[in-house]
Simulated scan of single mutants.
Amino acid sequence: MTRPSVAVLDYGSGNVHSAVRALNRAGAAAQLTRDTQTLLNADGLVVPGVGAFSAVMEALKAIDAPRWIGRRVAGSRPVLGICVGHQILFERGVEHGVAAEGMGEWPGEVTALPRDVVVPHMGWNTVDAPAQSALFEGIGQERFYFVHSYAVQTWDFDQTLEVMRPPAITWSHHGADFIAAVENGPLTATQFHPEKSGDAGMQLLQNWIGTL
């Protein structure tokens, strides 16, 4: 049986090899690449992200990645964003009072978590997935590994839009409720790191790979 091909976008973000290894263990044929044809033609594309929102967006723009990501989404080709790769899919991020434009695939703003809790939010936390979630199927009340100081804390999707399948939003809490994952047609993203989340993360990656 042929393994689904997964391209992990190489734009200079650090600490991505663990994602490649986890995807391969989960049943994909994954490779780190910035080759345009591979990014467009792979069964799945993973957009990782470590660091500041604005820096990640600049690095993506430097290799024209937003255009390739957008073409995949427009063609209903699966994309998975992880951590800052999740955040940049929203409209904008605000860090230290400075706003940076995101890809705008979803409405919302990435803002600082409350300062009355330990920040960064680093470690294991539970999530609240909706019943219709395919990403969390068979996982139950497991914990996932987070490392972040910023998050999207409101969901402002236009509920009047007629869509065949509304986005599935998974929430978590650290000082405030924040979006832990989004499933929206071909576009999926997690604020946490599934590749660092043990058996639960492996099951989640297998669930995503199963949709390719």
Score class of each variant (00 low, 15 high):
M1H: 02
M1E: 05
T2C: 06
T2K: 13
S5Q: 10
L9N: 06
L9R: 02
D10Y: 03
D10Q: 02
G14K: 06
V16G: 00
S18I: 04
A19G: 02
A19P: 03
R21Q: 11
A22N: 01
A22Q: 04
L23V: 02
L23D: 05
A29R: 14
A29T: 05
A30T: 00
R34C: 11
Q37T: 13
T38A: 14
N41D: 13
G44K: 01
G49T: 02
G49C: 06
A52S: 14
F53T: 04
A55P: 04
V56D: 04
M57W: 07
E58Y: 05
A59W: 01
L60W: 04
P66V: 02
R67Q: 14
W68K: 02
G70C: 08
R72C: 01
V73P: 13
S76D: 09
L80K: 10
F90M: 10
G93K: 08
V94Q: 12
V94F: 07
V98A: 13
V98K: 15
A99D: 09
G102K: 12
M103I: 08
W106C: 09
A112E: 14
L113E: 00
L113T: 02
P114T: 01
V117W: 01
V117M: 00
V118T: 10
V119Q: 03
P120D: 00
G123W: 11
V127P: 01
Q132K: 14
A134E: 15
F136N: 11
F136R: 08
E142C: 09
R143D: 01
R143V: 11
Y145S: 00
V147A: 11
H148W: 05
T154M: 10
T154G: 03
D158E: 13
R165I: 02
I169W: 08
S172C: 12
H174W: 12
G175T: 00
A176N: 04
E183G: 06
E183L: 08
P186I: 01
A189T: 12
A189G: 15
A189K: 12
T190N: 15
T190E: 13
F192I: 03
A200D: 04
G201M: 11
M202K: 13
L204I: 08
L204M: 14
L205M: 12
Q206E: 15
Q206S: 14
N207K: 10
W208L: 09
W208P: 09
W208F: 06
